[in-house]
């Protein structure tokens, strides 16, 4: 059964909490096929309270806000699907543009240009089919924007309403996490964590996930990812968004200096948006492969199930 170390295969099954006990015999030896049937040891099931209510609430509000913000943001981007550096939009010098070209035969092509290199992206970027099935000129396709057809005014309404919800939610989460010491206890990596980073990367690549007590808290890669989102991506997306506001630029001119101009801020806003998309993708993947229902349950009701065997814990510690 060699597929037990195949990333795409067995571990998904292995990591369902019900199956956790046998592998726990040794975390360092993942090839754990056919645990000795003679071993009568039953796993001890323990429940830990993994996520406090404010954390869960903040999480699900983000789940609501982020897809709406990303998709309404792409709707707004589609009104002028090009990015620039500096203060101005010099139309002849975008660093990224999603253009539409019309062929002699009356066809329509989507042309994406990045740093002067052009690609035909018909169907995806620059030109894609609407709900009527015909290909139209548009930056991002209809399925990626909110509303789905071109409607800047409505996209802005969605964006700014949910931006406020996202910001207020973030501020409340920040306040709670600071006061409850959620930040320093659970989120910010300890020096000890950082020393284990190489092993953590290897374990992740091999789809070995922490077990026992280790699973009850965030591992170092989780800590880095979450602190990155909370302390880097979050503030960046808000500050670059504010820099696009002419009124905020009058109130806080340093914003323009911080990001190198309004159009640079817009470009960074766009890049950070896709960093969020990347985070969400990896996050969902990790949630799915490290015990989907256990993770899901813990984020809904807080309780997280840990299966362990006394001997196994002992083994791990002496390793």
């Amino acid at each position: 059964m060699s597929d037990s170390i195949d990333p795409g295969g067995e571990p998904v099954e292995d990591l369902k909490p019900e199956d956790m006990a046998p592998p726990a015999v040794s975390a360092d030896r993942p090839v754990m096929e056919s645990p000795p049937p003679a071993e009568p040891q039953a796993p001890t099931i323990r429940w830990v309270y993994r996520h406090a209510l404010p954390v869960r609430l903040a999480h699900w509000i983000n789940v609501l806000c982020l897809p709406i913000l990303i998709m309404s943001g792409l709707q707004i981007f589609n009104a002028h699907p090009a990015l620039y550096l500096g203060e101005r939009s010099d139309r002849d010098r975008p660093i990224l543009s999603l253009d539409t070209a019309f062929t002699d035969s009356g066809g329509i092509r989507g042309i994406t240009t990045v740093f002067g290199h052009s690609f035909d992206t018909t169907g995806w970027l620059g030109a894609s089919s609407d709900s009527d099935g015909r290909i139209h000129r548009r930056g991002f396709p209809a399925w990626a924007t909110l509303p789905s057809h071109q409607w800047l005014a409505m996209g802005r309404r969605w964006h700014f309403f949910f931006a406020w919800l996202f910001v207020i939610n973030g501020l409340l989460f920040g306040l709670y996490s600071f006061l409850s010491r959620h930040f320093d206890r659970d989120l910010v990596p300890f020096p000890k964590d950082l020393r284990g980073i190489g092993r953590a990367v290897r374990d992740h690549l091999l789809f070995r996930h922490p077990k026992g007590d280790e699973a009850a808290r965030y591992n170092v890669l989780q800590k880095i990812a979450y602190t990155g989102v909370v302390f880097v991506l979050g503030p960046l997306i808000i500050l670059t968004g504010m820099t696009m506001s002419p009124r905020m630029d009058a109130a806080f001119p340093w914003l323009l200096d911080l990001f190198g101009g309004r159009q640079s801020a817009r470009t960074i806003h766009f890049i950070v948006c896709f960093a969020f998309v990347g985070f969400i993708g990896v996050h969902l993947f990790m949630v799915a492969v490290s015990g989907l229902w256990n993770n899901f349950r813990s984020m809904v009701v807080g309780r997280y199930r840990i299966a362990e065997i006394g001997v196994a814990r002992h083994d791990q510690e002496t390793n």
Partner: peptide
């Protein structure tokens, strides 16, 4: 001054 269009572009 910088003119900011609702579409997203700026010109000075």
């Amino acid at each position: 001054t910088r003119h900011d269009c609702v579409e997203g572009w700026s010109a000075i």
